[in-house]
Design a protein around this nucleic acid. Structure first.
Length: 470
RNA sequence: GCCCCCAUCGUCUAGUGGCCUAGGACACCACCCUUUCAAGGUGGCGGCACGGGUUCGAAUCCCGUUGGGGGUGCCA
């Protein structure tokens, strides 16, 4: 049976799904698709109190949103690392039996004390030749061989590590449970992984894992360490400080296609002068050899720009469909039963070119569904500061009341007449009307808005404004 | 401290020794369009960190300096 490469994505469920993880997953996925391989999802839930079951579902859902889904013929999993604990321990004991690992009874504190006493950092190999048997509280450490470990990395090239600089690391904890380094390698072997594509932060772990692969009797997989994503301070994106949750972006109305496209341009770029390209083109062109070596800043502003482009690329129907979530009762600022799909449809095209994320949509049309507009005080003050404001509003009420056909062109003509008579510009005179009716100084084109709103409500709001101005 | 990685406009990138007077995108600025705001169009600002080599020729190769980043757990 000849089969393609087997990639894998192995997140640990310790919080919301991170955009950095999403990018790594996408890299693996693109490669899997292009090379006709398999993408294995493995949840690394090995003990650790930080793991929560709900995060696991979050990862699965977020990946599916990005297009990496269970059910696709090239998707395999999810597997759970904790299910393989027995195999991890078995592998560790094999290494012990072969003399490639040994037990040590030093506590972390004792290791620390010895390090301070000797002036050297880390574990000094104290128990290497003490011939300790397994026992409670004893950890199993890997006996790092002498020599040099050369890692062949698809994005970095050849990276050399002097084994003498690598301490005898722990394989099994004092309580007998396996550590990440070991579990990760054993699982990759069990799952016949051929390519390990992960974030650069794992590069220092790689020589250790490569030694483990060899000690366990298999040739190491092909490695590739992609640069990390950083914040404006050029620090690795962190869950605590930065806005990194994929779920949150999704909630705010970032489109999956925009997120995917943007993430792929971090550390890499499609050929040609356009960065906005369909996923299929990314699959066709993406190569690890072309991935940049330096960290990339996750620029939300640029993500928003991408998203705006994707929104504008949609048909009106698609846009309306995509807005369903932010317009729904729970998310919207208006009472559930006052939403009118027909009115939104009438405004949709005008809204579409004015938003960068779907979450911006409600504020553009809320005046249509709210009983009274939420008036922005600053906007109101500015729009009504001129002495012509009040008389103009009065005059407008009278004119609008007698308009024969309540349509945008008619409304525009009507206001234009009033405006010219006063020697003003439409840009000026529309301001108090806009604020009076919609509550805001900016929004979709005014006359179209009024047309959709209807004569009765428009006049009522204008009269309220006149009254308010005293 | 030790180990490792990295270095093109503010940001993301193209660039793999001559096609570079370094291209595009986001942001920014100006103008056009215009009923606000957008969108769209046009133009502009702006970069190969520094110093040595190698070469007829270096953003591209080598060395060093400086500056960033990552790792250094009985976390993953």
């Amino acid at each position: 049976m000849s089969q393609g490469p087997r990639y894998r994505f192995a997140p640990s469920p310790t919080g919301f799904f991170h955009v950095g993880g999403a990018r790594t997953a996408l890299y693996n996925w693109a490669l899997t698709l292009r090379e006709g391989g398999v993408f294995v999802l493995r949840i690394e839930d090995t003990d650790e109190s930080r793991n929560q079951p709900e995060w696991t579902q979050g990862i699965i859902d977020a990946l599916a949103w990005l297009g990496i889904e269970k059910g696709h013929p090239q998707f395999e999993g999810p597997y759970f690392q904790s299910d393989n604990a027995a195999a991890h321990v078995e592998a560790a004991m094999r290494l012990y039996a072969e003399g490639k690992a040994y037990f040590c009874d030093l506590t972390p504190e004792q290791v620390q004390e010895r390090a301070i006493a000797s002036g050297k950092q880390g574990y000094d190999g104290f128990s290497r030749d003490r011939g300790l048997e397994p026992g409670p509280g004893r950890v199993l450490r890997f006996r790092v061989p002498a020599g040099e470990t050369i890692v062949h990395d698809l994005v970095r090239g050849e990276v050399r590590f002097e084994n003498a600089t690598i301490e005898d690391f722990v394989l099994l904890r004092g309580n007998g449970s396996p550590m990440f380094l070991l579990a990760n390698v054993v699982d990759d072997q069990l799952m016949s992984i051929t390519h390990v594509v992960r974030a650069e932060e794992h590069l220092p772990n790689t020589p250790k894992q490569q030694m483990l692969w060899e000690a366990l009797g298999s040739p190491a997989p092909t490695w590739a360490h992609v640069p990390v994503l950083v914040n404006e301070q050029r620090k690795k994106l962190s869950k605590r400080r930065d806005k990194v949750a994929v779920e949150q972006y999704r909630e705010e109305g970032i489109l999956a296609a925009a997120m995917v496209n943007y993430l792929m341009t971090l550390g890499w770029a499609p050929h040609g002068d356009t960065e906005i390209v369909p996923w299929q083109r990314i699959v066709d062109e993406f190569r690890l050899e072309d991935v940049n070596h330096s960290p990339a800043f996750f620029d939300i502003q640029k993500l928003l720009a991408f998203n705006g482009e994707y929104i504008r690329k949609m048909t009106v129907d698609e846009f309306i469909e995509a807005c369903a979530h932010v317009l729904s009762a729970a998310a919207a600022p208006w009472p559930a039963d006052s939403f009118d799909p027909a009115k939104f449809r009438a405004m949709a095209e005008l809204v579409q070119t004015r938003v960068q994320v779907l979450a911006d949509v409600p504020s553009m049309v809320d005046f249509l569904f709210l009983d009274a507009p939420t008036v922005d005080d600053t906007a109101w003050a500015k729009a009504t500061k001129d002495d012509w404001a009040a008389p103009l509003l009065n005059e407008t009420v009278a004119a609008f009341a007698t308009i024969v056909e309540w349509s945008a062109p008619e409304l525009k003509a009507s206001l234009e007449a009033i405006t010219e008579a006063r020697g003003l510009k439409l840009g000026k005179t529309q301001a108090p009307i806009r604020v009076a009716v919609t509550g805001r100084s900016v929004g979709p084109p005014l006359f179209e808005s009024l047309e959709v709103l209807g004569r009765d409500v428009t006049l009522r709001r204008l009269r309220d404004a006149v009254a308010r101005l005293g």
